[in-house]
C-alpha cells in the first residue's frame, strides 16, 4: 500500500522553453523522417526492397521531442515502427537507407532490415520485431546503469498494443521496485494493427497503468513536440535523481496502414483526415511562423539528404553469401 503513495497520473508539467533554433532543428528532423519514410514507401513500390515495414508518418513529433530531451550517453530501445526514433537519435539516413535496402554498408550489414535497425555504438540498442520485446531489456539496461553508477537513462519506446503484453507489466513493476532510470515511452497511435485502443483496454489513459506499479504516469499530446520534450525531460530528471521510472503516453496517429499489407478496413477516411488536420509538422511550422517558402525550402533540404542516402544505398554492395554464417556467435 505504501508504495502507491507516489503513484499519480498527472497532466504534463509546464512546457520547458525551447529556443527557436532548437525548434527549427527539430522541425527539420521531423521533415527528414517524413521524407525518409515516403521514400521508403516508393522504394518498396518499385520492388527495390522486400519484406514489410511500419511507417510512422504522422508520429514524428513524438520521436523528435523524446530524443531531443535525452543526451548522447543515454540509451534507446526502439520499436518496429522505429525509423523516426532512429533518425531523431541522430542516426545517419544513408546508413539506415542502406540497411533498409539490405546492403552490407547498412547499420546491421543488411541482416536486420527495417525492423531491426540498431547503432550500438551510439547507444541505440535497436528496433524490435517483437511487440513489447524491448521492455524487459530496458530493466536490464537500468540495472546496468545503476551498477556502473553513471548519469545515464534508458528510454524504451513501444505502442499502445504493447501495453497489453505481460512483458509491459512485469518490466514496469521491476523498474519501479528498484527505482531504475527507465523512461517508458508509449506511443499511443490509437491502434494496434486493427485493434482500436478502446477495445483493447478498459481505461481511458494508458498512463493510468502507472498507478498500479507506483510510478509516475503522464499523458501528453504526442503531436506537440514541445509537450513530448517536456515530459521526457522531466522523466529524465526524475530518473537521474534516483526517483525511478516514468510512464509517458504520447497520443498520436499513424496516417499509413499498419504495414504494407493493411487494407485499413477498421477505420474511416474521415478519422484519418481529422488527425491529418493536426499534423505535427504543419503545427510546428505554424508555431515558428514559417512562410510557405521557408517550409518548402526546408523540405527540399530534407529531400536532398534522403536522395543522397538512396544514392549511397543503391551504390553499396550486397552482403557476400560467403559470409552468411558470420555473426551468430561472438
Amino acid at each position: 500500500m505504501a508504495k502507491s503513495k507516489n503513484a499519480q497520473t498527472s497532466q504534463p508539467a509546464a512546457k520547458r522553453k525551447l529556443s527557436d533554433k532548437q525548434l527549427h532543428d527539430m522541425l527539420y528532423t521531423m521533415m527528414l523522417i517524413r521524407r525518409f519514410e515516403e521514400k521508403a514507401l516508393d522504394l518498396y513500390s518499385l520492388g527495390k526492397v522486400h519484406g514489410t515495414m511500419h511507417l510512422s508518418i504522422g508520429q514524428e513529433a513524438t520521436a523528435v521531442g523524446a530524443s531531443g530531451a535525452l543526451t548522447q550517453q543515454d540509451y534507446l530501445l526502439n520499436t518496429h515502427r522505429g525509423h523516426g526514433h532512429c533518425l531523431a537519435w541522430g542516426s545517419q539516413a544513408d546508413l539506415m537507407m542502406a540497411e533498409f535496402m539490405g546492403k552490407e554498408t547498412g547499420y546491421c550489414r543488411g541482416r536486420g532490415g527495417s525492423m531491426h535497425i540498431a547503432n550500438v555504438d551510439a547507444n541505440n540498442l535497436g528496433a524490435n520485431g517483437i511487440v513489447a520485446g524491448g521492455l524487459p531489456i530496458s530493466v536490464g539496461v537500468g540495472l546496468s546503469i545503476r551498477a556502473r553508477n553513471t548519469e545515464q537513462v534508458v528510454m524504451v519506446v513501444f505502442g499502445d498494443g504493447a501495453s497489453n503484453e505481460g512483458a509491459f507489466h512485469e518490466s514496469i513493476n521491476m523498474a519501479s521496485i528498484w527505482s531504475l532510470p527507465v523512461i517508458f515511452l508509449c506511443e499511443n497511435n490509437q491502434y494496434a494493427m486493427s485493434m482500436p485502443v478502446e477495445k483493447s483496454m478498459n481505461i481511458d489513459r494508458i498512463s493510468d497503468r502507472a498507478a498500479a506499479y507506483g510510478i509516475e504516469g503522464v499523458t501528453v499530446d504526442g503531436n506537440d513536440v514541445e509537450a513530448v520534450y517536456a515530459a521526457v525531460h522531466n522523466a529524465r530528471q526524475r530518473a537521474v535523481a534516483g526517483k525511478g521510472p516514468t510512464l509517458i503516453e504520447c497520443n498520436t496517429y499513424r496516417y499509413m496502414g499498419h504495414s504494407k499489407s493493411d487494407r485499413q478496413a477498421y477505420r474511416t477516411r474521415d478519422e484519418v483526415k481529422t488527425w491529418m488536420d493536426k499534423d505535427p509538422i504543419e503545427r510546428l511550422a505554424g508555431h515558428l511562423g514559417l512562410s510557405k517558402d521557408d517550409k518548402d525550402s526546408l523540405f527540399k533540404k530534407a529531400e536532398a539528404e534522403i536522395e543522397k542516402a538512396v544514392e549511397f544505398a543503391e551504390a553499396s554492395p550486397e552482403p557476400d553469401v560467403a559470409d552468411i554464417m558470420e555473426g551468430v556467435y561472438a
Binding site: G102, G110, H116, E318, I324
Partner: peptide, 14 residues
C-alpha cells in the same frame, strides 16, 4: 543453416 533468417534477400534465399 544454423543461423537466424537474414533480412537481405539473397542471404535469406541461401
Amino acid at each position: 543453416l544454423d543461423i537466424p533468417i537474414p533480412y537481405n534477400r539473397n542471404l535469406e534465399y541461401h
